[in-house]
């Protein structure tokens, strides 16, 4: 596929399952990546809960999507940024997350946002 490659960042601030935002964001990530765009994901506030290991969604009869984060590598989506402050406020560390991420400060995340062509907030 030819054409301009743009820098997309999905900014994820919602917990999974309680609302549809997390799943919608993931779908948009996969679509943008299928069109070979330069995609990165930022997780802050309750968005960091999306990556918490060990989702077992059978009890609430909803399709779980933790495993899909593992496919991002196949889509060449390897830039996952997580806000340190948000993890700390939720008693989490990078070891609690289901995929490798880069943990950074909110200010550093903000700088990365400035570098994007398109920001999508979920």
């Amino acid at each position: 596929m030819s054409g301009d490659i743009k820098k997309f960042m999905m900014v994820n601030r919602k917990a999974p399952y309680g609302t549809i935002y997390a799943l919608e964001s993931l779908e948009v990530v996969l679509i943008a990546a299928a069109f070979e765009q330069d995609v990165s994901l930022a997780f802050l506030d309750d968005g960091v809960y999306q990556l918490k290991k060990g989702h077992q969604t059978k009890g609430i009869e909803v399709k779980g999507f933790e495993k899909t984060y593992g496919a991002l590598e196949d889509y060449d989506v390897e830039k996952l940024y997580v806000d340190q402050e948000s993890l700390t406020a939720r008693g989490l560390t990078a070891e609690d997350l289901c995929v490798p991420v880069e943990v950074m400060s909110r200010a550093e995340l903000g700088k990365l946002m400035e570098e994007q062509d398109v920001l999508l907030s979920f």
Partner: peptide, 15 residues
Amino acid sequence: NEFQIAPAVRVLTKA
């Protein structure tokens, strides 16, 4: 089964 998605063509080819 592993990732809960059907991969896009490009990804399928590579995988």
